[in-house]
Design a protein around this nucleic acid. Structure first.
Lengths: 117, 117
DNA sequence: CAGTATCCAGACCGATACTG
DNA sequence: CAGTATCGGTCTGGATACTG
């Protein structure tokens, strides 16, 4: 085929490296990212615990989110050589800074509900 | 058909009213939302000007974003009875607070690039 | 318990053409 | 200039079943 014209997919795959703005688009953009990030920030370290806390969160999606947060250096993963297998996720230093940005959202929420109008 | 089981669509349409967290998921989640919001925040009020500033932004998508921001009460719309028709968008008071949260992202970016590691 | 593979519906987005 | 309609491609996310 001619293929002289790039498909939409090819075009949108041309994504810039990794600005923090892109991270936000990418992370927060996914339906469960805020949830997962706030779980880790709240000290819920194990995937099983996260799933139990959040109704509707499947292992597949949870894992996808965790991978993405890992890739961006927002969380870190620790594996324990135990039976049954245990894994823990925690915020990195950068992750703490990053998540503090998102925590402002909760503040906004309060400001809003306590507003007059 | 039996239809005893809800489709995914039916389920995902059961969305909670409009917490600020949902807004962020919804707004930032859209590829162009940060862009559009920052344009308005920067004082670019007219759709035409926005399109000229951002390469790749179509009228359709721009309008979708503006509608969503309107719906959330983040921006407001003003129509002028002129020829040719003129419309302007501006941040609401809430929109200013909301966008200040997202502006922190730019700060994070600087913090990061000026970091040692 | 942690993680992955597959299938499929729906959301998002780009291109294009069109109306007021 | 502002805004909408339609079509089609791609990606995300949910259900499910499975491996180490």
């Amino acid at each position: 085929m001619p293929a002289l014209k790039k498909t939409q997919a090819e075009k949108s795959r041309v994504r810039k490296p990794a600005s923090v703005s892109r991270m936000v688009e990418d992370i927060v953009g996914c339906k469960w990212s805020l949830t997962v990030l706030s779980l880790v920030a709240a000290g819920v370290t194990r995937p099983g615990a996260m799933q139990r806390r959040v109704e509707g969160l499947t292992a597949k999606v949870l894992n996808e989110r965790l991978r993405k947060l890992l890739r961006f250096g927002i969380i870190e993963r620790e594996v324990f050589a135990e039976v049954p297998p245990r894994v823990e996720y925690r915020l990195t230093a950068f992750g703490r800074r990053f998540s503090s940005v998102l925590e402002r959202i909760a503040e906004l929420e309060e400001e809003r509900s306590s507003a007059v109008g």
